[in-house]
Simulated scan of single mutants.
Amino acid sequence: MNDYQQQDFPTAAVRHTAPTQQSRPGLRVTPAILSGASAVVVLMLFTVLFLLTRQPDKPAVPVAVATTRTAEPAPTEASPTEQATTSEPAPTGTATFTKTVDPCAVTDEDLVKKLTLFPDKSQIKAEECVWSTLAPGSGMPGNMQYRLEVYVKVFPGDLAAAQEQFLGQRQEAVLLARTSTPAEPPIGDASWTTLYTLPGDTGKGPTTATVGVRVSNAVIQVAYQRHVTEDPAGRLTKGALDVARSVAEKLGTSN
């Protein structure tokens, strides 16, 4: 080995330093990232605590609702108007009468005198004739005052119109009398009667019996009135029936 080989060469000292944060590759941790991570951790902790402490859902219990049932009204009797407008069968047959009729001419004069004693006739409407007992000044007491009204109307060729008029008159009579009854014995194709008393100024009536009749396409109505508070013997009803029957018969022979 020569001198050259054994000669020592000076060497440079190498300084070893620890790597710094800036020298490491990867994500850089900042205060904003640390703050966000902390918020996530806190949110997860609250979520876990909520799930651990939450009570299991209970099935919904239906709540009973108190209901009040309105009492149904008790059945009541039909009003007079409802009774009078009860559906009636449509009239059948052919219209018999073709000419108008004078009610004064088809009413029996002897029957009028019997029922009104001293009749005083008046006619304001073509289809209505009225007889009244002479005024009290003639010496007749108040309870001997009578009034007889006879209505006759023909509906040429129209049974339906006659039926409508017949039912309408019955309805008006029932509004006062509160009820109606079939005529006994029956008159014509259909008939009814009513009886009612009005108070009057002196408390003496009058009391009125009314009879309605339909004969084919003609309508008859008779009202017989007296200044009394009652008619126990039924004389007013009988008188009105007699006149209505007489007019119906006369009507059949006048056309």
Results as ranks from 00 to 15, higher is better:
223 A>E: 03
235 R>I: 06
164 E>N: 11
97 F>V: 08
150 V>N: 01
199 P>N: 13
206 P>V: 07
98 T>A: 04
142 G>M: 15
187 I>C: 01
140 M>G: 03
173 A>T: 09
2 N>Y: 10
62 P>K: 06
171 Q>S: 13
115 L>R: 03
201 D>H: 10
176 L>V: 09
160 A>H: 01
162 A>V: 10
1 M>H: 13
220 I>R: 03
79 S>I: 11
111 L>E: 03
8 D>H: 12
90 A>E: 12
108 D>L: 03
86 T>L: 08
243 V>K: 00
187 I>F: 01
205 G>D: 05
223 A>H: 03
19 P>L: 14
59 P>C: 12
93 G>A: 06
28 R>L: 08
110 D>E: 15
96 T>F: 05
130 V>S: 00
147 R>H: 13
13 A>P: 11
217 N>T: 03
68 T>S: 12
35 S>L: 15
8 D>G: 14
225 Q>M: 12
146 Y>Q: 06
8 D>E: 14
74 A>S: 10
68 T>C: 05
92 T>V: 15
2 N>I: 14
155 F>M: 04
188 G>R: 00
186 P>L: 08
250 K>R: 09
186 P>W: 05
245 R>K: 07
243 V>R: 02
94 T>F: 07
121 K>G: 00
140 M>K: 09
196 Y>R: 09
35 S>K: 11
92 T>W: 02
191 S>D: 02
105 A>N: 07
90 A>R: 14
134 L>N: 04
186 P>A: 06
209 A>W: 04
165 Q>R: 08
200 G>F: 13
155 F>H: 05
169 Q>D: 10
89 P>E: 06
143 N>P: 13
165 Q>T: 11
174 V>Q: 01
55 Q>R: 13
240 A>N: 00
16 H>Y: 14
170 R>C: 01
206 P>I: 09
137 G>H: 03
229 T>I: 12
182 P>M: 07
233 A>P: 04
75 P>E: 07
23 S>Q: 13
96 T>V: 11
53 T>N: 11
178 R>E: 15
237 T>I: 06
230 E>C: 07
172 E>A: 08
31 P>N: 08
108 D>S: 06
90 A>V: 10
185 P>C: 07
137 G>S: 07
44 M>C: 15
69 R>I: 09
234 G>I: 06
203 G>A: 07
146 Y>F: 15
251 L>K: 03
82 E>W: 11
18 A>Q: 15
62 P>H: 10
181 T>G: 05
